[in-house]
Simulated assay, not measured.
Amino acid sequence: MTAVQPRRSAAMIASIADPGVRTTRAPFGDALVKAAEADQRIVGLAADLAKYTDMHVFARAFPDRFFQMGMAEQVMMAAAAGMAEVGQIPFAATYSVFATRRAYDFLCLDMAEPGLNVNIVAALPGLTTGYGPSHQATEDVAILRGMPGLTIVDPCDAVDIEQAVPQLAAAPGPSYTRLLRGAVPRILDDYDYSFELGKAKLVRPGDDAVFVSSGLMTMRGLLAAERLAEQGIDVAVVHCATLKPFDEDTVLAHVADDRPVFTLENHSVIGGLFETVAAALARRGGSGKKIVPIALPDEFLAAGALPTLHDRYGLSANRVADRVREELSATPG
């Protein structure tokens, strides 16, 4: 009797790009190659996942500057710290769950405490895979936000990634980037936008409500805003590509008025962008203002087809637009 093999659904590893949105293949890999051509100190490391983090592009271009560490994330972190200690600029790639849950202590004490320029590039952040809790890093930002001296970057698209890589290489101290891999959406170059490490940016103005978003949810927020505009609802989008250090001044300048505020994040509602914005408001004396979080629930998520999961957990552009309409219809006046 022949055993039945489980079928592997392509939808579980589908691109996060919505229909009609342009994509760029492996923007991180190409950006790292370009940066390495200009700076011989840049090296790349992978923990047996070079192909799945787009680090293989760098490995092919610079085989003598690429180090395959095997399935040993803690060893990779320690090796990257050692390289930074002697003047190299490492970019170390793995999955988010392994970088945070498995190698936290090495990132903290080997990189952050001595302030070394090591750049962790972590694929599959939040709900960007359908392979269940073992691969879904829905709490990675919450785990890392309390680490002193660590920069956390949550890029929206290929534009963010391409512009972030050289800035991360030049910045002091360690960084953690929530990598979008493979066929990555390309949407921000349709707006007057450029990535600036440590800064939030108003990407789209709007008079009726405000989205404060990060990561792929800025893309979904922009798409939802376009759909809402067709119904006469004008939504502003403030993109927080850097989650730490957090640009309180820019964000609070756009949420200080009477417009309803929504935070959009591909992360648990616990410990991420929603709580960061709420804490910033409280520090500035605006704690009475309501913020509506659009985020992943505080639970282990299901496995399944990625588009279905995004719709189920409220991350799709249609679900974001629905949530805004519901909130605005329930608001007096």
Rank of each mutant, 00 (worst) to 15 (best):
V153H: 04
S329A: 15
I294C: 06
I120G: 02
R325Q: 14
F274P: 00
G286F: 06
A99F: 09
S329Q: 14
M77S: 06
A80L: 06
L32I: 10
P307I: 08
A224F: 06
V86M: 13
L315H: 03
D234V: 05
V141Q: 04
L315E: 00
L296K: 03
Q163H: 11
D311T: 14
P307K: 12
A241T: 08
A279K: 10
P6G: 09
A256S: 14
R319E: 14
H239P: 01
G173P: 00
I233P: 03
G285V: 07
S214W: 02
P166E: 09
V159I: 13
I233R: 04
T2S: 14
A183G: 04
G271C: 06
Q88S: 12
R8A: 09
S134D: 12
P174V: 08
A241R: 00
A123D: 08
P245N: 09
H239Y: 13
R41W: 09
T308I: 11
A81T: 03
Y176I: 02
S316M: 12
D64L: 12
V237H: 01
V97G: 01
S213P: 02
S9L: 15
G87E: 10
R284K: 14
V141N: 00
N266G: 05
M76W: 06
R204D: 03
R8I: 14
E162N: 13
